[in-house]
Design a binder for these strands. Structure first.
Lengths: 135, 135
DNA sequence: CTAGCTGCAAAATCTTTGCAAATGC
DNA sequence: GCATTTGCAAAGATTTTGCAGCTAG
């Protein structure tokens, strides 16, 4: 994932980045829109979406829900992990054991009651690797 | 999260569950709709959504994209983990170190090229716990 | 019986996109 | 100067919901 070549720092993009770095609440696009609008009343939601996409692509911010926007379902109810192909978005089960001990790590240092965790590996599947090995 | 009291096993629900357990492709709601429709041509998309929701609530299947349906953004680009409150959907950073060694576990046993991973803890935040300590 | 479920269709929610004008670099 | 970006508005995609009739238990 290479950086954009001509990455222009517009006021809109700058404010979005600044506002996002001010908080630790992991806001949604719409919440970011509201925050930014206090400083740039004429900005549009579309611009916010476009910039979040670009900033994430550039590694300056993170998108928390990865993959496509649609939910996926798994017929196996037991706890297990997944691997998602970053190219085709296919999801397969990860061949590693579920580790319940992970939750313990947080039990005493977080003020949340920890119920469980979800782990997703990100990678490139054999089919996609074959299509474009490098790049 | 308690189980439904009167959980009725309708043909639709049964077929959805069967079809989902047949595959290991982690289909989206729409793909499940297509699969189920081969056996129940008159089923509606709405029924599929409703049943997936209920089955997941009952622990018979898993929803992979947890939390709300909207994407969330993080101003911190470095790798780190999150905790999500299952009640209010708030997301905070998890006070544990990122563990790059996790990826290694898969390096030789998976046919994917592993690029990274994403870990999200699920819990109940202090504010929500206060509101409804038990239940 | 009757609470729970269904199909249908409309609505709601979230995100992307086409376009002409504006603007960083 | 010109490729990129913007605001606006419309379209797309996904999910939820109201309702009247149906049905499993």
């Amino acid at each position: 994932m290479l950086d954009r070549l001509n990455f222009r720092m517009t006021p809109q993009r700058k404010v979005i980045l600044e506002e996002l770095r001010k908080v630790n609440t992991h806001p949604s696009a719409d919440e970011i829109y509201a925050m930014v609008r206090r400083r740039l009343p004429r900005i549009s939601l579309g611009t916010v979406y476009r910039n979040l996409e670009i900033l994430a692509e550039n590694g300056q911010i993170q998108k928390l829900e990865l993959g496509s926007s649609l939910k996926r379902f798994d017929g196996v109810a037991e706890n297990h992990y997944h691997i998602r192909c970053i190219r085709c978005d296919r999801v397969v089960d990860a061949p590693v054991d579920f580790d319940p001990a992970l939750d313990q790590k947080l039990k005493n240092i977080s003020d949340f009651d920890i119920i469980g965790h979800r782990l997703e590996f990100i990678g490139i599947c054999p089919a996609c690797r074959k299509q474009a090995p490098s790049e």
